[in-house]
């Protein structure tokens, strides 16, 4: 198990390394070459003089060759900003003040803040959206998938096949706009936009503001998961141990839930971990459509303002998030199914 874990972590670290390299090349050489924009010019503000640009270059370390810049970026990502960088970027301020300005992902061009603090202020919104959406799609897809596997070719099964085909073709943002128009504007069932912070004493306002965006986000995934649950259930229902359980006189609900569904759930958990990336992608569209101030909305905002460090920081942050989630899923699966470890 320890060897398995080490292998997975090393693999994940390699992927993050590749992504950092890709992001660095994209926002360093490619940006300068394709769009004729140099990051120093963006940082220096409107109509900078050549001297100002040179000063900014020295300040941000952009006057060094690309490989030195990349090594610096990597080191800052792993260990945080060094004392030298702190002295350069925020001279004469305390460590706490400086942390607001400079972090592992650098500092934003558009706002006088570190990218880290921007990301952490927006992340709870995206996380809440993802959690509520995941709950909704599991609540839709598992019962429908199980029921249509128990009764193949029934009306319900045919209905869910149609739902799967249509559901995957729907653009979430357009469905979101339609939902806003009909449910929020015409009938006033949901708020038109906005987000409330989560509180344990009264979680309802939080849920109320997230319900509509999360449901729209969940629809697309629910379609996919109905299909997976159904095919997994069809496979396990034909297994010998299900027949044995029936022969022993176990009730039908016990056979379906305890014997079949439990064994069918492993691939569903794996898929769930792999789909986290897709969820983040969908969250961008949903956040923009519903006016939620999450990570996706921040990425779009930053990209429109050419705020390079913020855009790069969000890409790296989500890459790390996805890699970590995949390692966790792998470990969970290896604990549940010893065969995976030996692979």
């Amino acid at each position: 198990m320890v060897r398995f874990l080490i292998r997975r972590i090393l693999g994940g670290a390699f992927v993050v390394l590749v992504v950092t390299l890709a992001v660095f090349v994209l926002f360093g050489p490619v940006l300068t070459w394709k769009s004729n924009i140099s990051p120093a010019r963006l940082y220096a503000g409107k109509n900078p003089s050549p001297q100002q640009i040179e000063r900014v270059k020295a300040l941000l370390g952009l006057d060094q060759p690309y490989y030195v810049q990349y090594a610096n970026t990597l080191r800052r990502l792993v260990t945080g900003p060094t004392q030298d960088e702190r002295d350069r970027i925020c001279p004469g301020s305390t460590a706490a003040e400086c942390d607001q300005l400079l972090g592992r992902f650098g500092s934003s061009f558009a706002k006088q803040r570190s990218v880290d603090s921007l990301i952490w202020s927006r992340f709870p919104v995206t996380l809440s959206l993802a959690i509520v959406a995941a709950l909704i799609w599991m609540l839709i897809s598992i019962p429908f998938g199980v029921l249509s596997a128990i009764r193949p070719r029934s009306l319900l099964d045919r209905g869910s096949t149609v739902f799967v085909l249509v559901g995957q073709s729907l653009p979430v943002y357009y469905i979101g706009l339609l939902a806003l128009y009909f449910l929020a504007y015409k009938y006033g069932l949901f708020p038109l936009s906005g987000y409330e912070n989560f509180s344990i004493t009264n979680p309802w306002p939080w849920l109320y503001h997230l319900l509509l965006p999360a449901t729209v986000l969940a629809l697309q995934f629910a379609a996919l998961y109905v299909r997976i649950t159904r095919s997994q259930m069809l496979d396990t229902l034909n297994e010998d141990y299900v027949r044995t359980a029936r022969a022993k006189g176990a009730s039908e609900s016990r056979v379906v839930v305890r014997h079949a569904l439990r064994n069918a759930s492993l691939p569903i958990v794996t898929m769930f971990g792999l789909d986290l990336g897709l969820l983040l992608g969908g969250a961008i569209l949903i956040e923009v459509t519903f006016g939620l101030q999450g990570l996706g909305a921040l990425a779009v905002e930053a990209a429109k303002r050419l705020d390079v460090p913020t855009t790069a920081g969000i890409v790296l942050f989500s890459a790390i998030l996805i890699v970590v989630a995949n390692i966790i899923v792998d470990v969970v699966c290896a604990t549940l199914d010893p065969r995976i470890r030996l692979e």
Binding site: V18, L26, G281, L306
Partner: peptide, 19 residues
Amino acid sequence: IVAAFPFLLFAVAASVAFG
């Protein structure tokens, strides 16, 4: 690796660089 990463986020970031 390509499958795990969100297309939209990366495409938005890349479009900043490529125009």
